[in-house]
Nucleic acid binder design. Structure first.
Length: 375
DNA sequence: ACTATTTGACCGCC
DNA sequence: GGCGGTCAAATAGT
């Protein structure tokens, strides 16, 4: 009857306690950038010293690999939400490194080795999947996705497709309930925040509203039920269920159901950045997204997922609405990466911060009116 | 005042 | 009938 509020769990899910880690990661990236620059400046003189070059490459790969890992483990905690400091630090990185060489490095670097991850043709890629490096394949209606590389179960993603061949007949009850809708189901394992409130499900750059929690038979931990915050406003059907794994309480299993349609809203902010437009179009092809919720980790996930790999992208007809098209394969492949680099380094004259691409302002996020009860 | 979360009840499906 | 998904009143937080 009367609810006893458990206030200790009643924290807002926007808490991002470890700015320190964020700072460390960016510092790591900065360090990597410096090494790249150093290598670049010495490249000619070291051209015949393969050992030294190899050491440089190792170091670069190590530094960025480490940053990558920490980003992947960290972004779920929403670190990129509060990014003024990050923005500033990356701006320093921008000043620290030559534009063209970084573009080239981006293309060649192991940071972009999320390769298999990226399947632009795919039509059901979740941003989180992109971030975690998911590969998707259409298996006759049964789509399954797994992490391209990740030893831990974090990042493992499965696309299960609709599991309800028998659509429920629309109920004639007073409280019509839709059950087992036709939306595809995607399952993602995500690491729990290691710092702060580990009860908080990892961020996935959407805004969710919890509408239920249930003890599940045979499971140690309850399952939380969330729906898109914009469900009411934009009739967005996206939902997710979050549950800790029995054998690994530090991992959440997140089941996504339904695609976000809230980006359709005319109120959703738009971007002027060409790359973001390209990303948007890819996102649109992949999965409806609200531009207001394309936040940095998604952008970075996209970015990191890009690779100079014609095989991976060449056949994509849905590649970038913004990119126009009949460009050579290489151009088409490079376009997103170069564009991203352009976005980063072309200080441009526009007042808009080029870092906005990576760290869009939080103010763009519309707040939802919520489903107020008609008491 | 408004929004988000909690939680018992309700309901559909197996 | 049991389980899981959802509803919605109560309540906490801002």
């Amino acid at each position: 009857m009367l609810k006893s509020k458990t206030t200790n769990l009643n924290h807002k899910r926007k808490l991002h306690p470890d700015n320190m880690e964020e700072h460390n990661i960016v510092s790591l990236i900065l360090h990597g950038c410096k090494i790249v620059k150093e290598l670049e400046s010495n490249l000619e003189s070291l051209a015949n010293q393969s050992n030294v070059l190899a050491n440089y490459c190792d170091e670069i790969a190590k530094v960025f690999g480490s940053a990558k890992e920490r980003l992947r483990g960290h972004d779920h905690q929403g670190m990129l939400d509060d990014h003024d400091q990050t923005r500033e630090l990356l701006q320093q990185a921008q000043n620290n490194i030559d534009h063209a060489s970084f573009q080239e490095w981006l293309i060649r670097s192991s940071v972009c080795s999320y390769t298999q991850a990226m399947d632009i043709n795919n039509t059901s890629t979740h941003p989180q999947a992109l971030l975690l490096g998911a590969e998707t394949r259409d298996l006759s209606g049964h789509i399954r996705t797994t992490s391209a590389h990740e030893n831990r179960n974090m990042g493992r993603i499965e696309f299960l497709g609709s599991s309800s061949p028998s659509a429920p007949s629309s109920s004639s009850s007073q409280r019509p309930r839709r059950r087992k809708d036709d939306h595809e189901i995607r399952i993602v394992n995500m690491a729990a925040p290691q710092i702060g409130n580990t009860d908080i499900p990892p961020e996935d750059n959407y805004t969710w509203r919890k509408y239920g929690q249930k003890e599940i038979m045979g499971s140690k931990y309850p399952r939380g039920y969330y729906r898109c915050t914009h469900q009411k406003l934009y009739n967005c059907p996206a939902k997710k269920q979050v549950q800790r794994l029995d054998d690994d309480p530090f991992t959440f299993q997140v089941m996504y159901r339904g695609n976000h349609t809230c980006h359709m809203s005319a109120t959703a902010p738009t971007s002027s950045l060409p790359l973001q437009a390209a990303i948007m179009s890819q996102e649109m092809a992949a999965e409806p997204l609200t531009s207001s919720t394309i936040t940095s980790s998604v952008a970075i996930g996209r970015w990191l997922s890009m690779e100079f790999s014609p095989a991976g992208v060449g056949g994509s007809s849905s590649h970038g609405g913004g990119a126009g098209t009949s460009a050579s394969t290489k151009e088409m492949v490079e376009y997103p990466v170069l564009d991203m680099a352009d976005a980063m380094f072309n200080s441009g004259s526009s007042s808009s911060n080029s870092m906005d691409f990576l760290f869009p302002s939080a103010e763009g996020k519309p707040r939802d009116s919520g489903n107020k009860k008609n008491a």
